[in-house]
Design a binder for these strands. Structure first.
Length: 453
RNA sequence: GGCGACGUGGCCGAGUGGUGAGGCAGAGGCCUGCAAAGCCUUGCACGCGGGUUCGAUUCCCGCCGUCGCCUCCA
């Protein structure tokens, strides 16, 4: 069984499953008011890889990732653009999934929307009030963090220390809160704002509430794993946990957080304005390259993403595709047990995808060497293992050479003829023509091979 | 101020108490008519100062620097 770092305990520990053979995981998804940036892309890829690996390991995975489709930013943005907020969220949800599809992130088994769970959230907030853990103020309902045993677990800080950290910062929620860290469960609507009915007045749910209700509804108490970006550990996940504790309900057993995408050593974020959208990355590069880049680092480490690092990943991907082409159509055999075992060993060790990728590239060299030597038999199980590993990591190989128009094929044929006649000047001129037309020209035993570059 | 990370060769990025993962870029060679692809060789890296040790990049202490969370944030 895999060992994973757990933010709550601060240690790498065995993933213990509630139900044998089955994994329940919840990963905080996007708030849909704008295009996703590379940071969103990283968490999506990290947890997609974890999900795929667990499934590959033979576990039945239930993967839930929410869509936050109502919150302050959405209202603000819709107001600024003077259009219905539902139109905005629908648009950016489409953008989100288009980007996810492009980078090969599998759709969740469930993607609950906050607006689909308002009634249940209202019921849960009522229960929190009944239990004395929440209170209403003139502008909403708040959770009293002082009523929660062990608040601050994920931040590894006591409530007093967290409060001290407030320093000169402005306290969100105004002066009606009993404690600065108390957070909104329900926000009363101002005129013109979208709202749902509640016993405390029309309003909307606070962000931290939706994930509690939705994860417990879809996965049940004591679900196995809760994930997200490191910046969600506190306060978002802490606040989710606080609600479940206050409710007396078992919550996530294992907390997994991924490191940030950085630019020049600084966290990529909207507030810093140093972000690249996933949409732009996909338009400008091979979308698979981002997965390769993410896989080549450890999920908890910061990752520098620039045009240079993406292009490096694209070049690395070319090397993988080249072997995929070279081995396309070869006999299907069982994968090498050694290859599979080595992969399992590093992945079980806190999802060491960087080591797995090192193995992948090692296999590329080894297989090429064997094929250069003509030893197809020895190469075959390595190739099969290599393909299986890449598949488990979600890296899609591209073996097809793409569509080549007839006139281009004709040029290649003429080059072969020229080469047969040892007319090197003509052969090179034809190659230049092909290259200029945007094709990659490679010689092979079968003659000129041409593919779109 | 509290808490937590990090500082590895041109770039990205793993890892480990003891003959330098991996990718990209570069250099030389093999192969090739020439290229491309592929293969081989090539880099004596771990912020600084102490300490522990037979031996530290890896453990401990101090320092410097960078970053993150404590506020919306993947």
């Amino acid at each position: 069984m895999i060992r994973l770092h757990d933010t709550a305990s601060g240690a790498v520990r065995q993933l213990e499953l509630r139900d044998q053979g089955r994994v329940s995981m919840y990963v905080c998804g996007p708030t849909v008011y704008g295009p996703p940036h590379l940071g969103h892309g990283r968490f999506a890829l990290v947890f997609d890889v974890l999900r795929r690996y667990l499934a590959w390991s033979g576990l039945e995975v239930t993967y839930v990732s929410n869509i936050t489709d109502i919150d302050d930013k959405i209202i603000e943005r819709a107001g600024a653009e003077q259009r219905p907020w539902q139109e905005l969220t629908a648009e950016y949800e489409d953008v989100w999934y288009a980007a996810m599809d492009a980078i090969g992130v599998r759709r969740p088994d469930h993607d609950p929307h906050a607006t689909g769970y308002v009634e249940q959230m209202v019921a849960m907030i009522g229960e929190l009030i009944d239990r004395g853990a929440a209170y209403s103020t003139p502008d909403g309902v708040y959770l009293s963090v002082e009523s929660v045993e062990g608040y601050g677990l994920l931040a590894h800080q006591s409530l007093d220390d967290l409060r001290a950290g407030g320093g000169e910062r402005e306290i969100v929620g105004g002066g009606d809160k009993r404690h600065p860290a108390d957070f909104a469960l329900w926000k009363l609507a101002k005129p013109g704002e979208p709202s749902w009915p509640s016993p405390w007045g029309d309003g909307r749910p606070g962000w931290h509430t939706e994930c509690v209700v939705m994860s417990l509804d879809l996965l049940g108490e004591r679900f196995d794993l809760h994930g997200g970006g490191l910046d969600l550990a506190f306060p978002h996940h802490e606040n989710e946990r606080a609600q479940s504790v206050a409710l007396g309900r078992g919550f996530a057993v294992h907390w997994v957080h991924n490191g940030f995408v950085e630019v020049g050593g600084e966290k990529m974020s909207k507030s810093l304005g140093n972000f690249t959208t996933l949409t732009d990355l996909i338009a400008q590069h091979d979308p698979r390259a981002y997965r390769v880049l993410v896989l080549q680092s450890h999920y908890r480490s910061p990752l520098e993403v620039t045009a240079t690092t993406i292009e490096s990943a694209e070049a690395a991907l070319d090397r993988l595709d080249a072997l995929a082409r070279r081995t396309a159509g070869s006999d299907v055999v069982d994968p090498s047990p050694e290859v599979i075992e080595a992969f399992r060993r590093v992945m079980d060790d806190d999802l060491d995808t960087a080591a797995a990728m090192a193995q992948v590239f090692g296999l590329v060299t080894e297989v090429n060497r064997l094929l250069d030597a003509g030893d197809v038999t020895a190469a075959a199980p390595l190739v099969a293992g290599w393909r299986e590993v890449l598949s488990a990591l979600g890296v899609e190989l591209r073996a097809e050479t793409g569509d080549v128009p007839d006139d281009v094929v004709e040029l290649a044929r003429r080059r072969d003829a020229a080469r047969a006649a040892k007319d090197w000047a003509e052969a090179d001129a034809l190659r230049d023509q092909l290259t200029d037309a945007g094709y990659v020209v490679e010689d092979s035993a079968a003659g000129t091979v041409v593919r779109p570059g």
